[in-house]
């Protein structure tokens, strides 16, 4: 802010401040030029497809383009909701994402709290490095590694199971173990990343709080539940709002790559995004595919607005997204 009491360099500061007031002043034009490339990319790649959502209500034919295709009302939605897979993919997507949110948040916060107890800087850094390794692997690579554990001929998993008296599992033909496998892999891949976020929040806590609690005779668990976790809530709530807004969107790569696209597993591994992908690429059913997309986007949008509103109501202004 300009302070009139501080002497200015022969009035030019004041002059500059007056000039920049206009939207098309020299400085603002320069700002606009700086922002233009990124804005253009955003408008083309993110906003134009929003307009393209009208094809959910059209019988889109690639040959004639969006504008010339016929309107068909809600026909595409009828096809989607009439399909017997809609319930399965919606249920899978919701349940997996809910389970991912719960397990992911709990492990990340637990690891952050444990890491906070570690006093040696080099140990902290080593743990961070190790925990982040999975974050750097693509789902393709994770899928191949998983195949190394599970494949029927050479995999490591079955011999171990047999040694402990179990029976070998046909991993890529049996849908039953997959919810557990996916849950574990999700935690494995993201814990390190999320732990760093929570650990950063922990570093911001005033240490005298803990000292005061200790003097009052609080034990370790008491401190964690009375100080640490409440202090982490604002960050956790923001992360929660974001993931709830994405709850209808599955991490397509995970389901697609880890299962090696085995059709035998779809009962427990099919998710909305994969269904949309198949409808588009394999069936070339543009209408139904975009109807699903619109259904996802609208529900996601409503959820994010509602959770943000709820977070604001419950906890004041500190933990909301916008």
């Amino acid at each position: 802010m300009w302070d009139p009491l501080i002497p200015t360099d022969n009035g030019r500061v004041a002059e500059l401040r007056l000039r920049k007031r206009s939207f098309f002043g020299r400085h603002n034009i320069e700002f606009l030029l700086l922002i233009l490339p990124a804005l253009a990319v955003t408008i083309v790649y993110r906003y134009l497809p929003m307009g393209g959502l009208v094809i959910a209500f059209k019988d889109y034919r690639p040959g004639i383009g969006i504008a010339a295709s016929d309107w068909v009302g809600f026909q595409n939605f009828e096809f989607f909701f009439a399909s017997d897979q809609v319930w399965n993919v919606t249920r899978n997507t919701l349940l997996y994402n809910l389970a991912f949110i719960v397990t992911g948040t709990v492990t990340a916060i637990t690891f952050a709290i444990l890491l906070y107890e570690v006093s040696s800087r080099s140990a902290v850094k080593t743990y961070q490095t190790l925990f982040l390794l999975p974050y750097f692997l693509s789902w393709v690579v994770v899928g191949i590694i998983m195949y190394g554990f599970l494949n029927a001929r050479l995999g490591i998993a079955n011999p171990i199971i047999e040694r402990f008296g179990g029976t070998a599992v046909e991993w890529y033909a049996d849908p039953r173990p997959w919810p557990g496998l996916l849950l574990f892999t999700n935690v494995w891949k993201w814990s390190g990343y999320n732990m760093i976020i929570y650990y950063a929040a922990l570093m911001g806590i005033d240490p005298t709080l803990f000292e005061a609690a200790e003097i009052d005779g609080a034990g370790w668990f008491r401190k964690v539940f009375a100080i640490t976790i409440p202090m982490l809530m604002p960050v956790a709530v923001v992360m929660l709002i974001l993931s709830l807004g994405r709850i209808f969107f599955a991490d397509f790569g995970m389901f697609f790559q880890l299962t090696q696209q085995s059709p035998l597993l779809l009962e427990s591994t099919d998710v909305i995004n994969w269904f949309t992908y198949r409808a588009l690429i394999e069936l070339r059913d543009y209408g139904m595919s975009s109807a699903i997309g619109l259904y996802q986007s609208v529900i996601g949008f409503i959820l994010i607005i509602v959770t943000n509103w709820a977070a604001r109501r419950m906890s004041g202004n500190e933990s909301q997204l916008f």
């Binding site: 922002i35 990124a38 804005l39 955003t42 408008i43 083309v44 790649y45 993110r46 906003y47 134009l48 497809p49 929003m50 307009g51 393209g52 959502l53 094809i55 889109y60 690639p62 383009g65 969006i66 807004g245 995004n273 949309t276 992908y277 588009l280 543009y286 595919s289 975009s290 997309g293 619109l294 996802q296 986007s297 996601g300 949008f301 994010i304 607005i305 916008f322």
Partner: peptide, 24 residues
């Protein structure tokens, strides 16, 4: 402009319109 950058986080066109935009 900040809002213009943020809004796509809340709402998106999704796979099909993006695909058609890119390809056609």
């Amino acid at each position: 402009f900040t809002f213009l950058f943020m809004f796509p986080l809340l709402f998106s066109g999704g796979l099909v319109p993006t695909y058609i935009l890119m390809v056609r």
